[in-house]
Design a protein around this nucleic acid. Sequence first.
DNA 1: TTCTAGTGTAATATATACATTACATCAGTG
DNA 2: CACTGATGTAATGTATATATTACACTAGAA
Lengths: 67, 67
Amino acid sequence: MMNHVKSARIEAGLTQLQLAENTGVTRQTISLIEKGKYNPTLKLCLAICYAVGKSLDELFWIEEEKS
Amino acid sequence: MMNHVKSARIEAGLTQLQLAENTGVTRQTISLIEKGKYNPTLKLCLAICYAVGKSLDELFWIEEEKS
DNA sequence: TTCTAGTGTAATATATACATTACATCAGTG
DNA sequence: CACTGATGTAATGTATATATTACACTAGAA
């Protein structure tokens, strides 16, 4: 589950803790999502989008794997 | 968690069962997501996007609620 | 050097996404 | 009418997203 949360968060001038508070989760959850170790829920993805001012596609889109 | 999965699925000419099989979940899960009763994971959102040929923003974007 | 802010991550607990099984309704169609 | 495909949904079980607590490391500032 790779994504662009970390770069978008830094662009927005936020720390992990600030993003966590803005989105209503813990810092650990943000850290794990940035590291690609969590498969976040849609609700949290949207909250992160709102907090950093980006769209779902900008932060979370991944091209389909062609077998 | 309202979304546009149902209309996109119908546009794509798929039944709930076919979409479920294409995305690797059960028909019940698709039904509940279409009804807005589930908060799906990013991985499943992406699988649905691939199956119906739409983007995350097209299917799942919701404008931020301004308090 | 010491202190602090920012970050990574482990262990355990809790909430919830999703599966499984089952039964129901409705619209066509024979 | 009976039959089938498509859908809604309830009850219960399992997997995992997220919380909680805690400890570690690094970079920069005092």
